[in-house]
Amino acid sequence: MVNNDVFTPFLREHQLPQAYLDSALKWLTPMGESIVQHHINAGRPIIVGINGCQGSGKTTLADFLAAWLSHTFGLKTLSLSLDDFYLTRGQRQTLATDVHPLLATRGVPGTHDVSLMQTTLQALTQSGHVKIPVFDKSMDDRAPEADHKSINAPLDIIILEGWCLGTHAESPTDLTTPINSLETNCDVDGIWRSYVNQQLAEVYPTVFDLIDIQIMLKAPNFDCVYRWRLEQEQKLASRSDTANTRIMSAADIEHFVAHYQRLTEHILKTMPQNAHFLFHLDNDRQIQSLETPREVSL
């Protein structure tokens, strides 16, 4: 039996109604029990990956799952975001100068510190003291080291969420034709999208291969991304501690999500069959059904 009062601070922090908790307990706890069983069978710390487009609820799911596993089973659990491992603004500006201007915008493969992410995840499965970087989206930069999280490892379950987590690269031939006006006007020679695809093929598997269980929150289509991302930014703007920070306008968000269209549409086509737990969402981000395309194995 779950004590609902335990999750009252969680609902308040994420600005969620009680209905979210009811839905989470219905859909997510059976999956959580499977995760616990896999951890027991493996006899070691495990890494759970959550894939989903911008605004689909990945962070909320990761935080809920971590809280529920900790409260219900007493497991040492931590939720992390791919976003926390973004390169700094300065590093991305260097990429923009040396490779392509579009790499100044965070998010796509090639704009993360994959080496730091890999070593951090591996450190969390071993005994020791681990520092977790924090990325401040409102400032579009990595937070000062003094604000980084401090974790005593090892953990039992590490939950990592990210919009492109576990994704395979596209075929190079699929990159030829621009997918939107951003690619048409700003990536005429295809240098940006080719660099992103190369990073996804050659660099990111060092992290993706560490994932034991892959979850996907599947949006109905890419059209949902703009609206969901706008709602996400409005939540950020409503917080009292974001005065004088870099909150994006609706036009900014439209331009921003265009960076993700190609890979998001690729993910919606190819990722479902690779997920262990596949949640189908409706236009309002509500879970409609659950599939288990792949069996979890040791």
Rank of each mutant, 00 (worst) to 15 (best):
D84F: 12
M248A: 09
I215K: 00
A169R: 10
T176F: 02
L290Y: 04
L82K: 00
N4Q: 01
R294C: 13
V188A: 14
Q15V: 02
L278A: 05
N244Q: 15
L61R: 00
Q234R: 15
L263R: 09
P293I: 05
S194A: 12
N3H: 07
T173M: 00
A143M: 02
R92M: 09
T97K: 15
L281R: 12
D209G: 00
K137G: 10
T242D: 03
A219Y: 04
L80M: 12
V36F: 07
E265D: 13
A24H: 06
P9C: 09
H148W: 15
R106T: 13
I159K: 09
S127D: 02
H266M: 02
A275Y: 10
A146F: 05
A169T: 03
R229V: 02
Q261G: 11
M248N: 03
P144D: 04
A219F: 01
I191N: 09
E33A: 14
M1H: 12
E183Y: 12
P272L: 13
N152E: 13
I267G: 00
G43A: 06
E13Q: 14
D282T: 04
D113F: 12
D187G: 08
N274D: 12
Q91L: 06
M31G: 05
T60C: 01
F85Q: 12
I215S: 00
Y86F: 14
T111A: 08
H14Y: 11
T8P: 04
L61E: 00
W68V: 11
H38V: 01
V2L: 04
L124D: 07
L268A: 11
L102W: 05
Q286E: 03
A104N: 09
L121N: 07
C224R: 06
F85T: 03
A24K: 02
S70M: 13
H148M: 03
A123K: 10
Q15Y: 01
T94A: 13
W27C: 00
E33Q: 15
D189C: 01
L87R: 11
I151Q: 10
Q232S: 08
S81M: 06
D84Y: 08
R239N: 13
W68T: 12
N180W: 09
L278K: 14
T245L: 14
L165I: 07
Q232V: 02
Q93L: 13
K58R: 10
S240I: 09
I159T: 01
L230N: 09
G52Y: 10
A143E: 02
K26P: 00
Q286H: 05
V203E: 10
A169H: 15
D147P: 02
L124W: 14
S249M: 11
E231K: 11
H14P: 00
H148V: 02
A275K: 11
L217N: 01
L124G: 11
P205H: 08
V130Y: 11
F73W: 13
D189N: 08
G74E: 02
T60E: 06
L103F: 11
Q232T: 01
V257K: 06
T111K: 12
K137T: 12
G43Y: 10
I215M: 08
L16W: 09
L165M: 08
N152M: 11
D83Y: 10
S240R: 04
S150G: 01
G90H: 15
G128R: 07
V2W: 04
E33D: 15
P205K: 04
D136H: 15
N244W: 07
S289K: 07
H112S: 09
